[in-house]
Design a protein around this nucleic acid. Structure first.
Lengths: 259, 259
DNA sequence: GAGTGGTCTAGACCACTGA
DNA sequence: CAGTGGTCTAGACCACTCT
C-alpha cells in the first residue's frame, strides 16, 4: 500500500498515533506506573507496520511522559516532573538554617531528594574552567562531582571546581558532606564572602553519553548550566558545571530594574 | 542481512555514520553553507540502506549543525549560532540610548537583526496570562505579537500582554514601532516605574507547530521564557511570553548574594 | 522532468528482560 | 524460554524544489 491515504491531510500517521498515546496519558487513561501497550500490540491495534509504531514511540518518548527500557517496555513516568529552581536559593538565611540549596527546594515541592558523590579530589583544571577561575590550564583544583536524584531517578549532574589555595585550609570541602549550609557556608566562614553568582544556561539535545548518565530518552533536551561564584574581592572561588534533564526543571530568575 | 557485523560492539551503525558526518562538519571538511551529500549518495558511500541513513541524519539534525529542507537537501548552518541574552539588557541606560533590548544585544555580537510584527491589538486574556497580570480570564488586554529574525532566519517569537487600563492612554503602544527604548521606555514615561523583572524558563522539544514557525528540525529543543514586568507599585504591567530556538541562545543571569 | 527528503511496509535478526 | 524493544533491509509511493 501507500502512504496516509483517506483524509488526505499532511499529518503523518505516526504523529497522529503519538498524539493519541500522549493524550491518553495526559487524560489519565494511562496512569503513572502503567505500562504502555507493547509495540506489537500497537501494530495490531492501529493496523500499521512496526516501523510506524516505532517512530510514533520516539515521539512519545520525546514528550518526556514515558520511559522505555529494552526488554521490558514503556512505562508512564511517575510524575509531573518540574522542580522550580529559583534564583533565591542562594540566600544566606537558607544556609544558616543549615540546608543546602537543593534540599530547600526539594522540600518545597515535596519530593524525595538524594545525592550521590561520584568524586572528590584534586584534578587538573580543564580549559574552560581554568578560564573562569582565572588560573592556568592544568593547574591543580579541587573537583567535587555529584549526581542528584529525585524520587529515585537521576536528574542532574554537578561538578564544582575550586582553586587549591582556597580549599587547602578548609578540610570540610574534602568531605562527602561538607556540613550544614553546604560548601558556600564553609567558604563564607573562611572569609570568602560572596558578592554575586553568575549563571549561564544553554539548552541542547543530550549527547549519547549524557543520555545514559541521566537515564534520558535519546534526543531529550538537557540544560547546561555553569555558575561562577564571585566574592566581594572580585574573585571566582567556585565554578559549578551542571547538566540537568530539561523536563525536570523550571528556572526562575528575578532581575532587579537598574539604571 | 543482519545487524552491525564486523567488530561486534554496541554502537549502532547509524550512530557511527552520524558521528562521522558531525565530525566532518566540526573539522571544517564541510563548511558553512555547504550541502551535505544527499541521502541516496550516502547510501552508496556507506553501503547501508536508506532507512539507516535516514536515522543517521535525524541524529545529525539533532546536533543543530545542519538544516534540512524538503526537496532540497541538508545544508550546513551558517553559524555558530548562540547569541548571548544577558540579564542586564533591561537597564534604563540602554533604553535612554534609544535602543531596544534585542537590538542592543544583536549589535554586540555583530549580527543582522530584524523584527516582524505579527499582530497588535486587543485580545481576551488567556488563563495563564490573566493569572500573571492579576485580571479575570477573558478580560480585554493589549497583545503585541512579534517574530524576531537573526541573519534572515526566525529565532524567536514573543507575545507581550498588557492590561487595558495601562495602555489605553499610551498611543505608542499600539504602533508597530513604539519609539526609542521600546515599550518599557514608554511605560516608565507614563509613571509605571519598574522594580523588577521575573523570568521563568523551561526547555522542551518543539511541538510540530513550533517546528514550522521557527523553521526548526523536528525534535529540536526550544526554550519557553515568560517574563513578568513588575512596577514599584507591585503591579505586573506586562507579561512577555517568548519561545526561542534553543541553539540560538545562551542565557546569562547575575544573581546578587543576599541575606 | 529529475532529484531530493518524508512516510510507510513487511519481514529479518539481535539484545535484553523476566519467568 | 517467550516477549519485548533496537537495528537493519529493500523497495514502494508521496511531496517538495529546482530547472
Amino acid at each position: 500500500m501507500g502512504t496516509a491515504v483517506g483524509g488526505g491531510k499532511a499529518v503523518p500517521r505516526y504523529v497522529q498515533i503519538a498524539d493519541e498515546i500522549v493524550q491518553q496519558i495526559r487524560a489519565g487513561v494511562l496512569g503513572a506506573g502503567d505500562m504502555v501497550p507493547s509495540e506489537s500490540e500497537l501494530v495490531d491495534r492501529y493496523g500499521v507496520s512496526g516501523g510506524t509504531i516505532r517512530k510514533a514511540m520516539v515521539e512519545v518518548r520525546a514528550s518526556g511522559l514515558v520511559e522505555t527500557r529494552h526488554g521490558k517496555g514503556s512505562i508512564v513516568k511517575a510524575r509531573p516532573p518540574v522542580r522550580l529552581r529559583s534564583s533565591d536559593r542562594f540566600r544566606r538565611t537558607h544556609r544558616q538554617e543549615g540546608r543546602a540549596a537543593y534540599l530547600a527546594e526539594s522540600a518545597q515541592s515535596g519530593a524525595e531528594a538524594k545525592v550521590s558523590v561520584l568524586f572528590i579530589g584534586p584534578m587538573e583544571a580543564p580549559e574552560d574552567i581554568a578560564g573562569r577561575l582565572g588560573v592556568e590550564v592544568g593547574t591543580q583544583v579541587l573537583a567535587r562531582r555529584r549526581l542528584y536524584f529525585r524520587n529515585g531517578t537521576p536528574v542532574e549532574t554537578a561538578s564544582s571546581y575550586l582553586p587549591w589555595d582556597v580549599v587547602k585550609d578548609i578540610p570540610e570541602l574534602f568531605a562527602e558532606n561538607p556540613g550544614g549550609g553546604g560548601i558556600y557556608a564553609r567558604l563564607e566562614e573562611h572569609g570568602h564572602v560572596f558578592a554575586e553568582f553568575v549563571e549561564t544556561l544553554q539548552a541542547r539535545p543530550a549527547s549519547k553519553a549524557e543520555t545514559s548518565e541521566l537515564a534520558l530518552s535519546p534526543g531529550a533536551p538537557v540544560v547546561h548550566l555553569v555558575r561562577d561564584a564571585v566574592t566581594e574581592a572580585g574573585r571566582v572561588v567556585e565554578v559549578c558545571d551542571t547538566l540537568m534533564a530539561a523536563d525536570q526543571f523550571v528556572f526562575e530568575y528575578r532581575i532587579p530594574a537598574r539604571d
